[in-house]
Write a protein that binds this DNA or RNA. Sequence first.
DNA 1: ACGCGGGGATCTATTATTGGC
DNA 2: TGCCAATAATAGATCCCCGCG
Lengths: 365, 365
Amino acid sequence: MTNEDDKARVANIFDVARLAGVSHQTVSRVLNDLPNVRPATRERVEKAIKQLRYTPSQAARALVTRRSRTIGLITTGGPDFGPSSTALHFNDAARDARYAVSMASMLDSDPASLRAAVELLLRQNVEAIVLIAAHAGALEAILSIELGVPFIAVDAGGRPGVHSVALDQYAGARAAVDHLVGLGHREIRHISGPLDSTDATERLRGWRDSLAAAGLPAREHLVGDWTPASGYRHGLALAADRDMTAVFVGNDQMSLGLIHALSSAGLSVPADVSVIGFDDIPEAEHFAPPLTTIRQDFDGLGRDIMTELLAVLRDEDAADLPRILPSLVVRESAGPPRGRAADPIDSDTTPETASAPAAARQPLG
Amino acid sequence: MTNEDDKARVANIFDVARLAGVSHQTVSRVLNDLPNVRPATRERVEKAIKQLRYTPSQAARALVTRRSRTIGLITTGGPDFGPSSTALHFNDAARDARYAVSMASMLDSDPASLRAAVELLLRQNVEAIVLIAAHAGALEAILSIELGVPFIAVDAGGRPGVHSVALDQYAGARAAVDHLVGLGHREIRHISGPLDSTDATERLRGWRDSLAAAGLPAREHLVGDWTPASGYRHGLALAADRDMTAVFVGNDQMSLGLIHALSSAGLSVPADVSVIGFDDIPEAEHFAPPLTTIRQDFDGLGRDIMTELLAVLRDEDAADLPRILPSLVVRESAGPPRGRAADPIDSDTTPETASAPAAARQPLG
DNA sequence: ACGCGGGGATCTATTATTGGC
DNA sequence: TGCCAATAATAGATCCCCGCG
């Protein structure tokens, strides 16, 4: 009955102190990198820590410091490449900064479950909340909740008073449409994402501005929902539009659906219709034909979130980061319009032909 | 200078007790649903809680109870549809069970960063650790670490002594290959995933067994890495193989690359070569041609993880859950072999033709 | 002044004990 | 006995003050 120490109790700071022959105060100094500790003593303590496999209890530390070193991450929407990728890279960056990430993902973003998610996170004492949302509705809903902690959203809209990080959607769209214009297209349609997404509206704005800058008309755009199915649906309608020679599509998945629909209707890409997408998902390179698209740096975005977060944690009204520029990836889905070999009307943009290398990436200025 | 209460201190249990006119002991009883509280008193306390917007500090609670109501989730690999989807649904299920999820995702799974991730999670006092890994190496690495908390892996291999949850990869592969056999194919190749993935080896085993059951020869399989690029690379080689009439591919992304390569080589799918994939990613329906594939229920898998977890948390040696069966989704990438109209050699499998509805799903028995 | 020890208070809840109506 | 108050111990750290070489 001498079960004194056969229950594997986890070591605490006093155990370390005893083993190292110092006071718990000194152990704490070592733990928190405080001065006034001789190197020799520091070493003895660190050895004791290692020997006991001691890790300080976050709960106890959080209790007294009121800082949990945990970030709350809310994501809405399905497992699409962009958001998933961003979340992964953000998590990486957070871990590098020795922060834990508590996640709350939800497929749909109704206010009720969003509020529940926020409360769950706040109860975890998160130091800040990050939102990666597919729909702007989620952002509005969260802004209406009193958080009590710093908040950062991935949002290309950039509301005043809200810290946001994003890739430059507008510049990406301009690059895409300018590319089509440079190839000689004059009737360029657009299938956008859902209009409650600021990513979608920024791309839409870029399309409009590029057409206006080239003196070309902007027909009514079509509104999709990011899914291949919506691209397919609109593609069936577009196939009947005999004026149109090119389509700028809001993302790669809808591009896939669009190409499918055009092919079913007997139209060839890019001989009859040029298509350009957005995102550069891993599949895009192997579409039929390989997709010309706009590459987004989700890795950089994820790291930017953490950079901005650390800045805000230090100083509540830190400035937002400059937005990373996407780059054009030229493959085979966009070429000169049918009936005209190659006579670019806008000579300040370098025209690419279908015979260009399978994937020539061009950073934007 | 009377800033007595203008610093918004968060309410604690004593504030609630004071407002409700009871002791903090009674508040605790209400909080934890303990008996010996009159309904009227309970109501007074609950009203006070609401009024003060009081939420008990998880840190303090974790400190004394040694339970954090937090699960650690480790994921390795990029943002592929399957793992991402599984993680999302698991997070949903966890939140329903009022558990928080602390995530640690990493692109590659080297032992060093895995160990760092585990330690970060353990310091958070997670009650259990869940692994969703692309490569089996990650599982081995984690098993070599002494965790001290329950552990569950998503792993089709099913090591003894390790709690695991998975979809029935073997049955899915059998269904896919049986379908090809039923269409009349006799030379069926396989492009597998990386062999350190048990998902990949289970699918490989299913392919071999189905061929053996039909008395067909199994040529050497090709090993990919789940990416479209690897499917493309192997597709270029397969295009030269004039015997082969069908390919069972380890996942949908490699199928896309394969189809791309076959088309480049002038071969038509399914007229010359039938292709069947695995996963049923959202894009698969719009491949050229739409992909016949095996649909995986990642939603169910995510929920199964949580179900198993709760069981293990109650009883360390709970039994594993039965594995969910995938279902065959018939589209247009698989048809009868070239040179033979349609004479299935295996009549116990219902043959499908390319003229079948675009997506007829068949649950497996 | 540096390097430490000793002895507290503190954070917020859980849990137990005693005791009163 | 049922309902609750009062008091205290406890979890594991941080942090502050004082004091001693």
